[in-house]
């Protein structure tokens, strides 16, 4: 393929995408939707050039989906985007314009004699497939940190946003990015009450860790925000240390933390699935063990 595209909507976290695109050969064209400074940050991320869709506020990045699709459809190539809401929509529009297959579960991507060979972790990671593609592919992956390189030229696209207007915006202070955390203490259904989160937060503070959770804690109970939910439809994290507290270890959750280097499991149920997927297994009541652990670290 003579070119690959990297999509970035309002952020410059494209390091991993650029690395994959560069490995497939050809020029790497970044398609950036957002303000000028974001386009310039992406331009310094190791790409060949940047096509910048000027979105200075007032429209959602998704409003540029038709423009991105028209550009990619006119000059086909692989397309890479991060697992973020607007980026996925722009990627979907590009994939539709190319009539390209979409791969959201790739663990490795390589060019082998003109074919694109992809290793995929399917159905939440219970099996893997090695698959070959002959034409352009749309990849949705973890974006990674900002890349590094010499500044590339930035060209302003002649395109207008369509269809989606932002009528209200309440920016939130940037929360923690669990995908970059070195240590995470994650909590699950073993926690009996919202107030008891304090126990977990104290342990996290003693470890210098972030707090994460399973899906029911974030979505059913709403005890923690959804950006702390780890699982197949939430965050995929890979910390050095993952302390799973009161988590049974359903596939849905484990798919989000399988790349953790070291896993500690604390669970009253010695037969819970997580107990066979941990480096350190503590069959214990979290209400006794977690405070003891916090004290032992202090």
């Amino acid at each position: 393929m003579s070119r690959s595209y990297v999509i970035a909507a309002g952020h410059a976290g494209v390091g991993t995408l650029v690395a994959h695109a560069a490995a497939l050969g050809g020029e790497v064209v970044a398609l950036v939707v957002g303000p000028r400074d974001v386009a310039e940050r992406v331009a310094a991320a190791g790409v060949t050039r940047v096509v910048w869709f000027d979105e200075a506020g007032g429209h959602a990045a998704e409003a540029f989906a038709p423009a991105v699709a028209a550009l990619v459809g006119g000059a086909p190539g692989h397309v890479f985007a991060a697992r973020r809401p607007a980026d996925r929509v722009l990627l979907g529009a590009a994939a539709a314009a190319l009539a390209a297959p979409v791969v959201a579960d790739a663990t490795a991507v390589a060019d082998e004699g003109g074919r694109t060979v992809v290793t995929r972790a399917v159905y939440g990671g219970i099996a893997t497939r090695t698959v070959a593609f002959d034409g352009p592919v749309a990849f949705c992956l973890d974006g990674g940190a900002a890349g590094e390189g010499d500044p590339a030229p930035v060209e302003r696209a002649d395109a207008s946003p369509a269809g989606i207007v932002v009528t209200y915006l309440a920016p939130e202070p940037a929360g923690a990015d669990l995908t970059r955390a070195t240590s995470i203490v994650a909590v699950g259904g073993g926690l009996r009450a919202r107030e008891d989160l304090a126990l977990v937060e104290q342990l996290a503070a003693a470890l210098g860790a972030e707090v994460g959770c399973t899906r029911p804690i974030a979505e059913g109970l709403g005890w923690l925000p959804r950006d702390r939910y780890i699982g197949v439809s939430g965050l995929r994290v890979a910390p050095e240390l993952y302390v799973a507290v009161g988590i049974s270890g359903q596939l849905q959750h484990m798919a989000g933390c399988r790349d953790a280097k070291t896993v500690v499991a604390v669970n009253t149920d010695a037969k819970a699935p997580i107990m066979s997927q941990a480096d350190y297994v503590l069959p214990a009541d979290l209400y006794e063990l977690v405070p003891a652990l916090t004290r032992a670290l202090g």
Partner: peptide, 16 residues
């Protein structure tokens, strides 16, 4: 988490 995005792109409809 990609079907709605590709569906919107295929239809050419505004998508969020």
């Amino acid at each position: 988490r990609m079907v709605p995005a590709v569906l919107g792109g295929t239809l050419g409809w505004a998508t969020v």
